[in-house]
């Protein structure tokens, strides 16, 4: 306050400034709160609805569906039933025609695919980015320009042909189709190359004096220096695999054919979590018709991402603002 007094000639001026300041704050915080509510409501609704009793939920009015404890609000309202049945249904549901909804299996598939494809992506991208950033060879710039140009081309164009390629080489309903086909990303190569190029040349010369070859230098010097970028890429790649829907829906919509991996037997569904979730909504089996069961499915697909986000918040936000892609 004393600070302000030095700035203003009259108290009237000061008061006006203060009033303006308060008004500005009220407007800004009000605006942010309104948008915040708009952002948060779907999440709140999702969590509340997933714990509600399915039969009761269908008959309740919508306000009742949303308010956590409506009886506190108005004591004539009935107490809502909270239950974990929806989650039990999602994990153990068995329909009359024998088909099962098995989110445990979808989880296993998704975790396996996302971890292996992330490792694959990082290994190939680091090597390629290293070649572009550190080595001199004929046609380097031409090759790099061609790769950059492909980033403009919509992925759908590749999907049309890849879908048929996967069918003709017998990769339908295999992990290979989910891991390798879209595993190498030009964007990650580009992003890593930029990081690698920022490493001063003198380090390389110094390493050479110490007798390091190209690959030893990559392993011992470049990868440790570029590790924040590599972690960012890993996170983006994991998130991309977790959210994949279109490609798995095309090439892995059935059951695993060969029972060699992890002693798999026939009938091992190849679905990932998003595909399983979509099925909860399209399946006409009566047991799955309840909205609460479907919402519970949405919760269990979203929850791991949330936990992941809370742990790696800084890395994710920094990486996304720098890179700007959604998997």
């Amino acid at each position: 306050m004393a600070e302000h007094e030095t700035y203003f000639a009259t108290t009237k001026q000061m008061r006006r400034y203060k009033a303006n300041h308060i008004l500005h704050n009220v407007l800004v915080y009000g605006f942010l709160t309104i948008v915040g509510i708009f952002i948060v409501i779907p999440f709140l609704y999702m969590i509340i609805a997933s714990f509600r009793n399915p039969e009761a939920f269908d008959m309740e009015d919508a306000m009742h569906q949303f308010v956590l404890f409506p009886q506190w609000w108005n004591d004539t309202l009935a107490e809502p039933n909270y239950t974990v049945d929806n989650f039990v249904t999602v994990f153990t549901y068995q329909s009359t025609n024998g088909s099962t909804i098995n989110f445990g299996l979808y989880y296993a598939n998704t975790i396996f695919v996302s971890v292996v494809s992330t490792i694959f992506t990082i290994a190939t991208s680091v090597l390629a980015a290293f070649a572009f950033a550190r080595c001199e060879f004929k046609g380097k710039n031409l090759l790099f320009t061609i790769l950059l140009a492909t980033m403009m081309i919509p992925g759908e164009m590749m999907v049309i042909t890849n879908y048929q390629t996967v069918k003709s080489i017998g990769w339908e309903n295999t992990y290979s189709a989910l891991i390798f086909v879209h595993g190498v990303s030009v964007f990650y190569i580009f992003y890593l190359r930029q990081t690698f190029q920022q490493i001063p040349n003198e380090l390389f010369l110094a390493a050479k004096v110490d007798g390091y070859g190209h690959f030893k230098y990559l392993w011992r010097v470049m990868i440790p220096i570029a590790s924040p970028t590599i972690v960012t890429i890993a996170i983006l790649s994991l998130m991309g695999s977790w959210n994949a829907y279109v490609w798995p829906n095309l090439v892995a919509n059935g059951y695993y054919k060969n029972g060699w991996m992890f002693g798999m037997k026939e009938g091992w569904s190849m679905w990932l979590v998003s595909n399983g979730l979509m099925n909860l909504f399209t399946n006409s089996d009566t047991g799955l018709d309840h909205q609460t069961v479907r919402i519970a499915g949405s919760v269990i697909v979203t929850a791991p991402l949330f936990v992941f986000f809370l742990i790696f918040r800084k890395f994710i936000m920094r990486g996304v603002s720098r890179s700007g892609i959604k998997g």
């Binding site: 779907p42 977790w242 998003s274 909504f281 949405s298 697909v301 979203t302 936000m317």
Partner: peptide, 18 residues
């Protein structure tokens, strides 16, 4: 404000549907 970015598009679309 960042939360919608880290969610599954299908899952939240389903919530919007409800």
């Amino acid at each position: 404000f960042f939360l919608p970015y880290v969610t599954n598009t299908i899952a939240l679309g389903m919530v919007f549907q409800t």
